[in-house]
Write a protein that binds this DNA or RNA. Structure first.
Lengths: 155, 155
DNA sequence: TATTGTTATACTCTATAACTATA
DNA sequence: TATAGTTATAGAGTATAACAATA
């Protein structure tokens, strides 16, 4: 008979729930993207592009933490899909500026609305005070993870 | 001047934190696995195998929600790595039973310890009462996601 | 000489379709 | 006839290395 409510047991169960949450959110998102004919990697690029405005592929490769070669393929796909395009860099003829098309912009607007819908769906039934506590615990978790990420930054 | 502390704003910020948590946990895990020469897909198979005991590839393809062909490749890789092996099925000569090797078992034991360490690292600094509240809110979120997953189960 | 982005090549995960050996 | 697992083929993400054009 081990004691129920044991701290380690609670923590283990909690972490399991957190992983389930991650998995379900990822599934949810993958489903949405699939319905739009997009993949996660391409969506991530669009998202970053929206956040930054027009940028070089070099900059994208740094933000996405992948190789320039990888960016080439993603931009090719997004260009074919009509969501982004390459424009000449005004001063550096080696580089090009990746830009959202109007359709790309529209896609991002839809995502923002979907994001808010999801936030409401997940949290609307929870009192604001509880959400405050939730955020505090969440931030503690993030602090621990940020700490360990700082310890091993350069691969 | 929109009101700060507005409900929608809080929810949006909270969802952002949740996504950051997911991303950091995934990065953390990918780093660990990479150090062990494993990929996420192979680790997932090992994990399921540990949970189920020896099973057919057919069963694995259902649990992992992927094609039998995919399982073939993953088991091939795990077999080469010495973590799993195929054994003849006792009654069905078409099928084989995938089994953890001793090294595979040892790997799983290490993971279990690492899992508990992570749970402690993330939660030890948070009072048990706060964790209780955290779990309640987490469960509400999961309920919402489980609901929508049930609505569209069969692709 | 260094940098931007590309082509060439390769590995992993994933899927569909066709096929073999069994049930 | 149906099932378990394989081979064959293909697309997507990712990586390294070599190369062109330009800085």
């Amino acid at each position: 008979m081990t004691a129920r409510g044991d701290g380690a047991t609670q923590r283990r169960r909690l972490l399991e729930r957190v992983f389930e949450l991650s998995a379900r959110l990822a599934d949810d998102m993958a489903g949405e993207l699939d319905a739009q004919g997009l993949t996660r990697a391409r969506a991530e690029l669009l998202w970053r592009l929206h956040a930054s405005g027009p940028v070089t592929q070099r900059a994208l490769s740094e933000v996405l933490e992948c190789t320039p070669r990888n960016v080439t393929g993603l931009v090719d796909a997004l260009e074919s899909a009509g969501l982004a395009r390459r424009e000449p860099h005004p001063t550096d003829r080696r580089a090009s500026l990746v830009t959202l098309t109007d359709e790309g912009q529209a896609t991002l607007t839809r995502w923002r609305d979907g994001y808010d819908d999801l936030a409401e769906r997940l949290f609307a039934a929870t009192p604001a005070a509880d959400l405050q506590g939730f955020e505090t615990t969440l931030e503690r978790m993030l602090d621990r993870l940020r700490e360990s990420a700082e310890m091993k930054p350069a691969p």
